[in-house]
Nucleic acid binder design. Sequence first.
DNA 1: CGCTCGATATTCT
DNA 2: GAATATCGAGCGA
Length: 204
Amino acid sequence: MNSCLGRDFYSRPTVQVARDLVGMKVVRTLVKDELEVRLSGIIVETEAYGGINDEASHARMGPTVRNAVMFGEVGRAYVYFTYGSHFCVNVSARSSRQKAGAVLIRALEPHEGIGLMKLHRASEELYSLASGPGKLTQAMEIGSTLNGTDMTDPASGLFIERGASRGKIVSTPRIGISRATEKNWRFVDSSSIYVSRKTLINVR
DNA sequence: CGCTCGATATTCT
DNA sequence: GAATATCGAGCGA
């Protein structure tokens, strides 16, 4: 049985996909010393980003070389470099009525390959492995070479599987943005200790 | 603990 | 020139 999320899952309104991704499992497969290694974590925090109507989105100015994935086929990885030293990973998702959209993966509860994640992050502390968008890309070895990767294909090395369980999901304003702060498009599993920030403004 | 601030490269104005 | 979907060191309580 293949539990990898397919194109249909991502062909829905971005905000709905963002909410539904909480509790799913991100899987990264790497080959180390000719052996396949599986790194994975349960998604505990996401954010939705839209198109021209979302003032906080990279896609607000229309298609560019950088944000092209947000306008392309859904289910692909949008990886970008920010603040001079960090990568962030999104998966493109939108309904047929939207022109662009993607879901930022903001935090994971480490699951498989924790030893290797500790090496990548140079830390032994479980909480610091993937409790933030820049941290989780470093832990899972996600960089610009994965931009545009098809995340509905397990052979690509980066995909998302159905999870088993999740706690209560709350929505809040998005983190680290200065525009469109009125939109509650951040979704977190309020029962998880692995979210990027513990001070939550509970909404809904 | 919690808060402030500097680093650092790409993109936007 | 300014801003940025961030992180971690350094500080004080």
